[in-house]
């Protein structure tokens, strides 16, 4: 099916961005190109049908003009007081039932901000810190189109005082295998028991594929991040958890692990209405309750406590961060 690509007209005024647009168009077979003034005309419109768009999302090429970095509170980081996330991509080709993006965005189209240099200038202005990619969409899932790592790995290689985290549920690791590892890049995989991945993380790589990918990049010398977040509560939670941890820590050596984070399912109240409308699996709301402005699992404390106890058998405490 022909891909629909919306392009902000202004991109063509900049030779570097225009070249990036051309390269993108060449990578699709006979794309349908529609020009717009701003990505928001399409992406931010109210009353959109997220599920309908999710069947065949369009790609919107845009320029980010402000708010390149967002500060992350220290308790949500992995050991730095200066932590930020940045999003070169809105939305994700995967379809996780619990994903907050369904509650945050009214559109399922991808927005790709192609002005990487402006993101990099913003990062340089901050100086040292931890910089996380993969908050508003999977970092690697659209790598073949965006070439994000092609631009950012060399950038961070020259800035050893900062850390780049690339978070994903994909098994696409080719860019990492084709280049020498850099010490300040963490490839972080989100993980859940295999049955949860199969039922709730549609279109993502299976647990086995993710583990295989981890093994390969670790062998190459890259640092791995394990993100058990959000851990979804289920019947027989502990046996499933034990099996997951055993599999992961058998396959990934502790020396390759940079950090492990642990968190449970939580959704800001403001996203709930849309999330309930758009999710494919309302089971995710079973056993949850509103605590202030956040929807949380009733079993959050118990889950986290039990998971933390088990993880401390596998990794030193200084590598474990509980969200």
């Amino acid at each position: 099916m022909r891909k629909t690509i919306y392009i902000e007209k202004d991109l063509l005024d900049d030779p570097i961005l225009a070249a990036r647009v051309d390269k993108c168009l060449f990578s699709f077979r006979d794309p349908r190109v529609i020009y717009c003034d701003s990505y928001q005309e399409i992406f931010s419109r109210k009353q959109q049908n997220f599920r309908l768009q999710k069947q065949n999302p369009a790609l919107i090429l845009a320029k980010k003009r402000k708010e390149f970095l967002h500060a992350i509170p220290e308790k949500f980081g992995i050991g730095s007081k200066n932590s930020y996330y940045f999003s070169h991509l809105f939305n994700c080709p995967f379809d996780c039932s619990y994903c907050f993006l369904q509650g945050m965005y009214s559109s399922a189209h991808f927005v790709w901000f192609i002005n990487y240099e402006d993101f990099q200038n913003a990062i340089d202005q901050k100086g040292e810190g931890h910089f996380f990619s993969g908050y508003d969409g999977d970092s690697l899932a659209l790598e073949k189109t965006t070439g994000f790592l092609h631009h950012f790995l060399p950038f961070f290689a020259k800035r050893p005082q900062s850390l780049l985290e690339v978070r994903t549920k994909s098994a696409y690791i080719k860019p990492f295998l084709c280049t020498d590892p850099i010490a300040n890049c963490v490839i972080a995989w989100s993980l859940n028991p295999e049955n949860i991945i199969r039922l709730l993380e549609k279109k993502t790589a299976s647990l086995e594929k993710r583990l295989q990918a981890m093994e390969k990049v670790a062998e190459k010398g890259w640092k791995i991040g394990l993100r058990f977040d959000p851990l979804m509560y289920q019947k027989d939670f502990l046996p499933h958890l034990d099996q997951l941890f055993q599999e992961v820590f058998t396959r990934v050596q502790e020396r390759s692990i940079h950090s492990v984070t642990l968190g449970s399912f939580r959704v800001p109240k403001s996203y709930l209405k849309l999330l309930k409308k758009n999710t494919q699996d309302p089971r995710i709301f079973a056993g949850t309750h509103l605590e202030g402005n956040t929807l949380k699992s009733l079993w959050e404390n118990e889950c986290i406590k039990k998971a933390q106890e088990r993880l401390e058998n596998y990794i030193p405490k200084e590598k474990l961060f509980v969200i």
Binding site: M1, Y6, R32, I34, Y35, E41, I42, N56, A58
Partner: peptide
């Protein structure tokens, strides 16, 4: 129509159904 415009007004970008392709 993939984009509907009028002078001095914002445009509409209708959903493109697969069978319309």
């Amino acid at each position: 129509a993939q984009k509907i415009s009028q002078e001095n007004a914002s445009s509409f970008y209708p959903h493109i159904f697969p069978f319309m392709q």
